[in-house]
């Protein structure tokens, strides 16, 4: 894990407003995407982040933060 599970959850939660408003922002430029397309897009981004998070970090340049408190 590159980041702790807790941090991953937080990242996904914070991502949600951006995905919601991305649709609004696009509509300003005349690009209309449906709610379903928006959901798919969100799922893809979340999946990418999850994969990035669980992929073992190459090299040991950074110590792995455990995130425990």
């Amino acid at each position: 894990m590159r980041i702790s599970k807790g941090a991953l959850l937080v990242v996904i939660a914070v991502l949600i407003p951006f995905i919601v408003e991305f649709r609004t922002a696009l509509s300003w430029f005349g690009i209309e995407i449906s709610v379903l397309e928006s959901l798919v897009l969100g799922a893809v981004v979340v999946l990418a982040i999850v994969i990035w998070a669980v992929w073992p970090p190459n090299g040991d340049a950074e110590a792995e933060p455990t995130g425990s408190s």
Partner: peptide, 8 residues
């Protein structure tokens, strides 16, 4: 930011 105790 990654080092903060996000699980808490």
């Amino acid at each position: 930011l990654k080092a903060l105790p996000w699980r808490d």
